[in-house]
Amino acid sequence: MTVTDDAPVGSDAPRSGGPLVELAEVQKYYGGLHVLQDIDLTVARGEVVVVIGPSGSGKSTLCRTINRLEPIDAGRILVDGMPLPQEGRALARHRADVGMVFQSFNLFAHKTILQNVTLGPIKVRGLAKGEAETRAHELLDRVGVAQQADKYPAQLSGGQQQRVAIARALAMDPKVMLFDEPTSALDPEMIKEVLDVMVDLAERGMTMIVVTHEMGFARTAANRVVFMADGRILETTDPETFFTSPESDRAKDFLGKILKH
């Protein structure tokens, strides 16, 4: 992977800056199912938070509420001190500042790799095409897919697609990056190339909220681990404490299952 020395916005920010993302008493229901219960979570500027938990625990939903891909039923969500807007232009502006990486990559299938990365900057940020392309080439180079710029997503491996998806999100100069199980759809040998990009991003000081089962990433890059089960946050600790001496029975049970292999 090539690492250029251009740093993302906010890279000078200290690890323990002020709160950037705040969730308070967040509630979310799917019909009668209470999928997010009393969620309180504050993520500081420059902090990397890993959200871990069994499937169905609400961790993906939690991640998606932060850019309102999932609306909440009660509670408050603030990003950089601003409450999430209702649907409309204000929400679109908010989303432009929150980068999102999906489990299934979701690259625009009819656009080339370069166009995938430049579309947002040109259409949403109003950048000139040349400027957007220069920046896109830098980002593609940084995530190691510079050679693929003129190909279509379907011509790339899963790992390459996910790295492009990260570059696409970074091209918007987001304040915070959300990762919704970014490696769950990848073959084992491709997971590392994506995690390397994410670790690099963390080291540059990006604020990140990462839903993942990658314990290695949590240990290397996370400042905090949030453990969720049944729509609740059961534990919030540093990674070492969480993996060596979890408090709740649910966490012990969960770790016992995933660490045995």
Binding site: N67, L69, R89, A92, R93, H94, R95, A96, D97, V98, G99, M100, F102, S104, F105, N106, L107, F108, A109, H110, L119, G120, K123, V124, A165, R168, A169, M172
Partner: peptide, 30 residues
């Protein structure tokens, strides 16, 4: 068109009109 396409467009801050024009409709035509 897979839902993820429109979600990705929303996630980078596109309005509904931009989403339709640049992401959903071109693929829907195909």
């Amino acid at each position: 068109v897979p839902l993820g396409q429109a979600e990705a467009a929303r996630a980078i801050g596109m309005t509904f009109a931009q989403n339709m024009r640049h992401v959903v409709l071109p693929q829907a035509f195909r």
